[in-house]
Design a protein around this nucleic acid. Structure first.
Length: 473
RNA sequence: GGCGCUAUCGUCUAACGGUUAGGACGGAGCCCUCUCAAGGCUCAAAUAGGGGUUCGAUUCCCCUUAGCGCUACCA
């Protein structure tokens, strides 16, 4: 039984790189009928905020994939401490009484890495116990094997064979002097307790994995499989950060921009992973069946945004593909919600609403487009685009539109075909090209110079409003 | 500095050592057409550099360069 976890720390919003990690974990567990664990890694009490936790939920809920089990590390601190003390008792860890403030001075850089403080590492058990009992603060450190030539090795599902000399690994901290577990301790203790079989996470943890394996071994626990994912980076090669790159790093930005969850999921999947058969637009099920670590790349992927355009053009393209291909029944509620968020209450009945959505969606790329470019379909209060205005300003166009209004009013039939007949007949009688009247009609009815076939527009606006808008022009 | 990882069109990527180095986005153009999209077709665009190994390297090895990560009582 496969068990994987997504373990964000609530110190910011849900980062798009984290979202992708979540998605890959989800895809993998779903594909193998495993269990997806969501674990909030909140052991850094100074940096955690509830707003951040909320934003993580918001992002995850928007993606809509869900999870099977949920834990918060802050509620499991005793478990973490237990492991630290077990290791201490076994001599696999030791107390370091060096004051935290002196850390930087005690760890000179430049010549080589800081590995440990031999004096503390060599403290006798009696001495260590005595000082602890006397109330002296300490940090518990893992006692890394110092035998030259001893190495930790593992087979990463993505990066292949990995190994590192333990001589190059420092005696990392497990339990802080304030008794809070460090990330390494909490993470491994929980992974053991939750029986995690696959750790799928960002490549920034690749080097940490050696420490984690040491911990798993010391705890006598089975070592999970590891799959590290290449990072998502900015066009300049730097890592995505809120301070430098702004909202492009937060998933909620894409939600607010009008992305379909599936459109964005699909986009994220294609960053650092490929089905290797040239497919791009894929359904969730297709992604699930195609996903494998073999398809995961090893080099970082650039999210292609710029100052002038905060959205990666490929993301937009993929979203538009999904927008026009998912079932109308699934799309309609999303459009309705988006319209409502923009203060528009579509007045159509459900079937008619779906018909309209289906007609206009092929030239939109986000949900928000329905409220902007598509505003006239859902409200009488819309602006006339300057280019649309030009089509109305063609000499004689207004008179023709007024006349068209009367002909439609006089014709009890109102279908694409009947309107087309009325319009072409009128154009013919007045000796103007049908195109002029067609384009002017679209401009008058929607305020837009572009859009679906004009006759389809007529039926989408509805007979009454068509007559109204044509007369008013 | 030490350790680890990575390197194919502008971007995302494909290519059991043998391909005119493929696809997609974006760009340019053509067709279609009531507009704009969509769709169809065409064009421009890449193996970081240097050494090896090999009959033959995008592919394997080494070096250089560049980028990223870890090197915290952050995660």
């Amino acid at each position: 039984m496969i068990r994987a976890r997504f373990a964000p720390s609530p110190t910011g919003y849900l980062h798009i790189g984290s979202a992708r990690t979540f998605i890959f974990n989800w895809l993998y567990t779903r594909k193998h009928h495993g269990t997806m664990v969501l674990r909030i890694d909140d052991t850094d009490i100074d940096r955690n905020t509830s707003a951040s936790l909320q934003s993580i939920y918001d992002g995850l809920n928007w993606l809509g994939l869900g999870w099977d089990e949920f834990y918060r590390q802050s509620e499991r601190l005793d478990l973490h401490r237990q492991l630290a003390y077990d290791l201490l008792a076994k001599g696999l860890a030791y107390r370091d009484f060096t004051p935290a403030s002196a850390d930087l001075e005690d760890k000179p850089r430049g010549e080589g890495p800081w590995l440990c403080n031999p004096e503390m590492r060599g403290l006798s058990r009696e001495e260590s116990d005595r000082r602890a009992a006397a109330g002296e603060p300490f940090v518990i450190r893992f006692r890394v094997d110092r035998d030259p030539g001893y190495e930790v090795a593992f087979q990463d599902e993505v990066y292949g064979a990995q190994s590192k000399l333990t001589a190059d690994i420092e005696d990392f901290a497990l339990l802080r002097s304030n008794t809070m577990p460090t990330y390494h301790l909490a993470s491994c203790a929980d992974d053991i307790d939750l029986r995690i079989t696959h750790i799928i996470r960002g490549q920034d943890h690749l080097s940490n994995t050696f420490k984690h394996i040491l911990l798993f071994q010391a705890a006598g626990a089975p070592i999970p499989r590891f799959a590290h994912l290449p990072l998502l980076i900015a066009p300049d090669g730097s890592k995505l950060s809120k301070r430098r790159h702004g909202p492009v790093v937060s998933v909620t930005t894409y939600r607010d921009y009008g992305f379909l969850p599936l459109g964005y999921i699909n986009f994220l999947c294609l960053l650092g992973w490929s089905p290797k058969d040239n497919r791009e637009q894929m359904t969730l099920y297709e992604l699930e069946s195609a996903f494998s670590f073999e398809g995961v790349n090893r080099s970082n992927a650039v999210v292609n945004f710029s100052d002038s355009d905060p959205i990666d053009p490929k993301a937009l393209w993929l979203n538009s593909q999904h927008l026009r291909s998912i079932g109308v029944a699934a799309l309609a509620p999303l459009v309705r919600q988006s319209l409502a968020e923009n203060g528009l209450q579509p007045y159509r009945d459900e079937d008619f609403f779906k018909h309209v959505v289906d007609t206009i969606r092929t030239r939109f790329s986000t949900l928000v487009d329905f409220s902007t470019k598509g505003r006239a379909y859902f409200s009488d209060d819309f602006d006339i685009d300057p280019k649309a205005q030009e089509k109305l300003d063609v000499p004689g166009a207004r008179e023709l539109l007024h006349e068209l209004a009367e002909r439609i009013a006089a014709n009890p039939e109102f279908t694409e075909a009947s309107v087309e007949r009325d319009l072409r007949k009128l154009a013919d009688e007045r000796g103007v090209k049908a195109g002029v009247l067609i384009n002017a009609s679209r401009a008058a009815l929607t305020g837009q110079p572009v859009g679906p076939s004009a006759f389809a527009v007529f039926t989408c606006i509805g007979r009454e409003r068509v007559i109204q808008r044509l007369r008013k022009v």
